[in-house]
Simulated scan of single mutants.
Amino acid sequence: MHGPLSAAWLLVALCAATGAYCLLRMRSGVEEQRRTAGGEALMGFGMALMAVPTAVLTPPSWAWLLYGAVFGAAAMRALWAARRGAHHLHHLVGTFAMAYMAVAMAVRPAAHAHHEGAGAPVLTGLLLLYFVGYVLWSGARLVPAGATTASGPAFAGWGDRPELARACRLSMGMGMLAMLLTM
C-alpha cells in the first residue's frame, strides 16, 4: 500500500480486526454464516497483509503472484458459490479485485510505488465505482439494524450478530476503496 504511513497502518489494523471478528463469526450455528465468515476472514487478513506499508515491507514479485493465486482460487470458489445467492457475487468481485491488485503489483511494482504511468486503468475505475456503491449501500443498511423481540432487545452470539457482520463488510468495503485508490 502506498500513501501516508499512519493511514496504511490504520488500514492494516482495521482489516486485521475485521478478519479476526470474521473468525469469531465462524463459530455460528448456521452453516451458511460460517462459510461466508470464512471467506470474509480470508479477505480481511489478505487485505491487512497487502496494506502493510512498502516502507516497512516490500514483498518480492513472487509473493504478489502467490497472493494473486490465492485470491484467484478464492474468486473461483466464489464464482461456484454465486449460484446460491447474490452475496456471493460480492465475494466474487472482492476476491477478483484482490487478485487484480496482487497481479498488478507483481507486474509493475516500481510503477505503483512511484505512481508513474498513464493513470488509472478502466478496470480499476470500474472496481472503484462498484465499491463506492457497495459502501454506500452497506452503510445505509446499518441504520435500521436494531433487532428486538417481544421481550426486549434480541442478543445473539458473536457469530450471529447481523449488525456486526454488516459493519464488518462495510469496513472491508472501505478498506478495498482505500487500496484501489492507491493503485
Rank of each mutant, 00 (worst) to 15 (best):
L57V: 14
M105S: 15
A104Y: 06
S151E: 15
G29P: 01
C22M: 07
G19M: 04
F155H: 15
C15N: 15
L136N: 01
R77D: 10
G85I: 00
G117Y: 05
W64P: 07
L92D: 03
S138T: 15
A97Q: 05
T58S: 13
R25T: 06
S151K: 13
R25N: 04
A118V: 07
M50E: 11
R34G: 09
F45D: 03
A20R: 05
V93C: 06
V56I: 12
G68F: 00
A55K: 06
W137Q: 01
A113W: 00
M26F: 03
L24C: 13
P60A: 00
G117A: 04
A154D: 03
P144G: 12
R34N: 07
P53R: 08
F96Y: 14
G117W: 05
A97F: 00
M105W: 14
R35W: 06
E32S: 12
E116T: 09
L79Y: 06
A69S: 09
V103R: 04
F71C: 04
W64G: 04
G85A: 02
F131P: 12
C22P: 00
A154T: 04
R35M: 09
R34P: 10
A145W: 00
L49G: 14
L24N: 06
L142M: 11
R34A: 10
G39A: 05
A150H: 09
V93M: 05
G94V: 00
Y130M: 02
G19D: 05
P109V: 02
A81E: 14
H115M: 14
A73G: 08
L142E: 01
T124Y: 03
T124V: 15
L126I: 09
A120M: 15
L127R: 08
L42Y: 06
T149S: 08
A63Q: 08
G38R: 09
M47Q: 15
P60D: 04
T149Y: 00
L92E: 05
A147F: 04
A37Y: 03
G146C: 07
V12W: 11
L89Y: 04
P109F: 01
A102P: 14
F155N: 08
L92P: 07
G152Y: 08
V30S: 10
V107E: 10
G125I: 08
W62C: 04
L14Q: 13
L24K: 06
L126S: 09
R83D: 09
L126C: 13
V107G: 03
A20G: 10
E31P: 02
F71G: 04
A118P: 10
L23S: 01
R35T: 12
A75G: 12
T18Y: 04
Y130C: 03
A145S: 13
V122S: 07
L123V: 15
L24A: 14
H87C: 01
G68Y: 01
R25Y: 01
